[in-house]
Design a protein around this nucleic acid. Structure first.
Length: 237
DNA sequence: GCGACAG
DNA sequence: ATCTTGTCGC
């Protein structure tokens, strides 16, 4: 049942096909508790752009010690425009390459972007989680859809993100007096598990450490042309 | 038609 | 996301 997977990895879908792929794949998302005892490794996922290419970085931390275990990066030529709601078709090709370079896949991904808090309930966190059948959490810095009530100033305070009657995610204050992050289910987690894991990874900073490090690494890779790390899809000139 | 709109 | 340095504050 891996229709679309090859095309997604190769960045070959049209805008219309991309929306259809989301509609087709959304039913595969599973919402279930992720036992903390089963989480030993957490990987932060992010991408940056430069010179017509997307640079993805993935950083795996030990969940208990929050120490970096391994990391990887990859680049891919950009083949898809940025369209709100279709972010994954722009970033997933490079991200999937980077994840494939890890020695071990983690127990859960923390993705820079939304999961179910998406127009078709299939944001990039769902997309990556379903394609890899790996637990994943969406952790975005702003809302794509839905609304959240104001939250208290203390770290750990939360407010539901909802669209009408539908609960889509949580606005989560990960640090005192900073803007909240928006958590949503990607795949094989539930909202409570997701919020708990994210909070456990925020060592006094707004973004969970794996995501923060992935963001830094993606930026430096983009600036340095990935520092000599090359990809079949994006060969050196 | 108008405004909103992850990264 | 990106174009871009220093700077104010905890």
């Amino acid at each position: 049942m891996d229709e679309y997977k090859a095309e997604i990895e190769a960045g070959e879908l049209s805008v219309g096909q991309a929306r259809m792929a989301q509609e087709a794949l959304r039913s595969r998302v599973r919402v279930e508790a992720l036992e903390e005892a089963r989480v030993q490794r957490v990987t932060g996922v992010d991408a940056s752009y430069a010179g017509g290419s997307a640079y993805a970085a993935v950083v795996t931390l030990d969940y208990t010690t929050q120490q970096v275990v391994e990391w990887a990066s990859a680049s891919a030529a950009i083949t898809f425009p940025y369209i709100p709601g279709l972010l994954s078709f722009r970033e997933a090709p490079a991200i999937l390459l980077a994840l494939a370079r890890l020695e071990r896949l983690p127990d859960v991904l923390i993705v820079d972007g939304h999961g179910l808090a998406h127009p078709r309930r299939f944001g990039i966190a769902c997309h990556l989680g379903v394609l890899l059948d790996l637990p994943s959490i969406g952790c975005a810095k702003s809302l794509l859809i839905g609304e959240a009530a104001d939250l208290e100033a203390e770290a750990g305070s939360r407010a539901e993100v909802r669209q009408g009657e539908e609960l889509l995610g949580l606005a989560l204050r990960t640090r005192q007096r900073v803007k909240p992050v928006y958590i949503s289910v990607g795949h094989r987690v539930d909202l409570e598990s997701a919020a708990h894991i994210v909070l456990a990874c925020c060592r006094g900073q707004r973004l969970p450490e794996p995501a923060r490090l992935a963001h830094q690494m993606a930026n430096s890779c983009a600036r340095q042309g990935e520092a000599g790390v090359m990809t079949r899809q994006d060969p050196p000139q």
